[in-house]
Design a protein around this nucleic acid. Structure first.
Lengths: 215, 215, 215, 215
DNA sequence: TATGAATGAGGCTTCATTCAT
DNA sequence: AATGAATGAAGCCTCATTCAT
């Protein structure tokens, strides 16, 4: 009569080679790395816990010792990747830096951070899962808004002699457009060269042309 | 944390009268419309045939009278949406159109097509499913490449008096950057106003500034 | 590169003999019957959807066309089984029914309903899952309270000549005790004979002894 | 609908200092206490080793230093709890104890043991897991049978002047019915007051009424 | 004796697809 | 052309158990 009483309490047959045991501090970054790869490639729904686990060097169930759900991994991943540019290292602008020098410094900084592979992967996630994580999407929007106006234009406007009615002042977001263009290119085409082998240089030239222009 | 965003955790009770019977010519567009909405919102894997069907006014099984699979709907959708800009209507450029006029005409055309809601939805799909449909992704890349240089720069270069070493000539992709910027903004933030309430105007101003600039 | 794109959209290999197709009106009772068997035998957690499905003649997934979850089946089951005794058919009490006759009628009614196999199964469920379905537990408590006092004692008190200070009047729940005793016996021991091959008779005798007693 | 009632959907962060180290003699009772609580609340399958461990003040793995499996804990628990009433302390029956006094002594003893919280918890277990531990169920049945006839009726029949055809003699199990009624009440409703704030008193009155009754 | 990361089987649920009606 | 019950393959997650520390 008592059928299947031990159905779910069966004795396990130890088989596979036991994997290495790590502390959470060591394992969590591995998990997030693997998660970035899978989520970025397949999106949230398409990524499989099994693959993330395998990529992180443990078993499916093992993930749950560190994260309570797929969603939790996803959010932790976004939180880890969503960063801000640190403008603190702004160089000696007061001294007679040329327009060219300053623009180069700024563009380098932007490209370095925003066009990095993790950033590109992040943007893919924000796009394909924007309804799942509206808060992070908003955080990124704030980041972009902040990038455009706060630092850059202030610096440019205060330190250079460009006219107040410069198109970059009226529409500060244009400052970022070449970088955003390159970003989308990488996001879609997975092509590290971007729309131009040297987009950084093009970006610099564009800004210089606009800033030097006597309108 | 919802397993699915708009979870429909119900079992529908015997309800509606059989839905209207349409010819394929009438039904297919409805299906593709619904599919665009669902795929764009949830990605390929995340979209559900049930939802597409419901959006198209029929039942799950009914879809299969028109398409053999989810994949088939997806491909048909991309085929329908992936279009090219028709430059044929290029106005009287030979006559003495001003830089301003010509740039406005070009920018209008670009924004109208590339920033239209279906185009934005399409880009989302290309991003989240770029590995599933590499051919379509490449087709879109070609489109972008074609947009940037072919027509526009030729026109500009040949018809206007801007110098050959203009930054726009050296890096023709910059022509499109403000539009691409606006595109990404809409793709991510679903925000029709874009990074600027009047990005079209900013784009025009940027191009004029560059074309008029005496370097 | 695109590994496993169709992982979850694989083409099915039709194999097993297709099962019969029924309307919900036909299938739902089968499901609840199977569910009663499984839940009663294994409890909520221990019962398996697979077994319920098999018992109802369809596949695991097929259940979800009729119920949204295991929980939903469980609740529907309780709702179907949680009944009340219909006292409407109360016989001719006004006429000179003997104590014996009336008590027999009442005890028959109680035993018939409360000691029926489905009722026994229900009580098992209420016990093992009382924290999962507190509302149904309360509903059953109300039922028991109603049984004890409302009808029975009123009838007895008004129609018979027993003294007002009879122990059954002071503690009306004792009326039900032999039946409850038999119920627990069946619930625990699955023994249809109960604590006594003829518990009904014993119950009748007890009540008669108490009602006829001249204290 | 919670998948589990008291879901603990968290991943505990590196926290507490290692717990206290106890000898088995100290730890085992704690484990069984915790196990009683969990098993009684969730049934065998539903109870979690993690919760038992936590309730006993150690970690999941620690349990296995004391018990080889969940099943072993369950069995040990039943063995500890399944007890018998000790009638040895039967008072001076030879002397002229009144019916009332004797019945009160007996009912007290019954209620004290059978309606104690651990006993109630045990009965829950026997009900929800009766197929898992048929031997213990039988042991309890024997206990109930023994309770009903052996001691009590013998005492009553031999020491009191009640007629041989008393309903309690013919159906000795009725002796226990009010107590069983109260037991089921507590088992199902977790309500320490039982079907009556003073079921003990009602039980006494019932027995007295029956024993004193001149039929 | 105790910890907690890790395993792996198994259960619930989802959903693309089929097919009798 | 359309319905919706049914299938069956996966995927997420749980949890008894193990074991290095």
């Amino acid at each position: 009569m008592p059928q299947r009483l031990n159905a779910k309490n069966k004795v396990q047959t130890r088989s596979a080679a036991p994997r290495i045991r790590l502390t959470p501090e060591e394992r969590v970054p591995k998990i997030l790395d693997a998660a970035l790869k899978e989520f970025s490639q397949h999106g949230f729904t398409g990524a499989r816990m099994e693959d993330i686990a395998h990529g992180a060097g443990l078993s499916k169930g093992g993930l749950y010792a560190h994260f309570s759900s797929k969603e939790a991994i996803f959010k932790a991943l976004l939180d880890r990747t969503l960063h801000q540019i640190d403008w603190q290292a702004m160089p000696q602008l007061a001294t007679g830096a040329s327009t060219q020098d300053m623009v180069e410094w700024i563009v380098d900084k932007l490209h370095e951070v925003v066009l990095s592979p993790p950033s590109v992967a992040l943007v893919r996630l924000l796009i394909s899962e924007r309804e799942r994580v509206p808060k992070r999407v908003n955080a990124w929007r704030e980041e972009l808004l902040r990038l455009r106006g706060q630092e850059l234009i202030k610096i440019i406007g205060q330190n250079l002699r460009c006219k107040a009615d410069n198109v970059l002042v009226r529409h500060s977001w244009l400052l970022l457009s070449p970088m955003v263009h390159a970003l989308l290119w990488r996001v879609v085409f997975d092509d590290p060269s971007g729309p131009d082998p040297d987009c950084r240089q093009a970006h610099v030239e564009l800004l210089c042309a606009l800033l030097d222009a006597r309108e």
